[in-house]
Write a protein that binds this DNA or RNA. Structure first.
Lengths: 117, 117
DNA sequence: GCGACGTACAACCATATGGTTGTACGAGTG
DNA sequence: CACTCGTACAACCATATGGTTGTACGTCGC
């Protein structure tokens, strides 16, 4: 087991504008929690919680640098989430293909792709 | 205004395994709410709520067919969500590019891309 | 060593979420 | 028309979420 992606946590973490903005800022991997917090109209502790949620979802990591902890987004988690959406879109495209090609088939090929869980 | 995508709702809707499974099933756009509900170990009303959440997020639409309402996923909403994740990944790639190319720049070009809201 | 800075975490509150049951209504079927 | 099926929605409950304040700990500068 190499830790299966927890889509509940990943999408849940992304379902908040503040957290998405933290993800965007943390791409540069330069700011600590306090510096991040200075951008938002809420307490330091609130931002800290948001970072913790992103961290549990695997969307960001924290690295000690001096007395700060630098927050850095993890592109791998972004990729995993994006890939799931891609799979849904491919399903959709496959359905279209099947529909356009409904010219007398043997009607036994309903192949399914594993998409989640 | 052509209704800006509500990422909070979209990602929030995707942050639940049952709802993701409904999205997957509704790609085929053949089942009504009751038929969808039969797949899950919860009440019909619970599934109905999940569908309503997906509908508010724009991830599925309902169309009356006979006395049923067929649920159909909207690939456009999936694309919008995927594109946002892609933009984050591109930011990340840009950061890498900038880092590898840190060979004496004029240090005044911090171009930013609009990514959200 | 002391103070300030950055972080972490617990306690608390208001509201949202995910589930339940019950009631009501619109559309087909006998 | 009466009945059933599929849907919709309200009321309710337990728990999760997003925010607050307060306290505590580690690390650097003096």
């Amino acid at each position: 087991m190499i830790a299966p992606p927890d889509f509940d946590r990943i999408f849940g973490a992304l379902a908040d504008a503040t957290r998405r903005d933290i993800v965007r800022r943390a791409v540069d991997g330069e700011e600590g929690v306090a510096e991040l917090a200075s951008h938002y109209p809420m307490s330091f502790a609130a931002v800290q919680k948001h970072v913790a949620i992103l961290e549990r979802a695997g969307l960001v990591t924290k690295e000690r640098v001096g007395r700060r902890k630098v927050v850095r987004t993890n592109p791998e988690a972004l990729r995993v989430a994006r890939d799931l959406l891609n799979r849904y879109e491919e399903l959709w495209r496959g359905r279209i293909d099947r529909m356009t090609a409904l010219v007398a088939e043997p009607s036994g090929t309903t192949s399914r792709t594993e998409t989640d869980q």
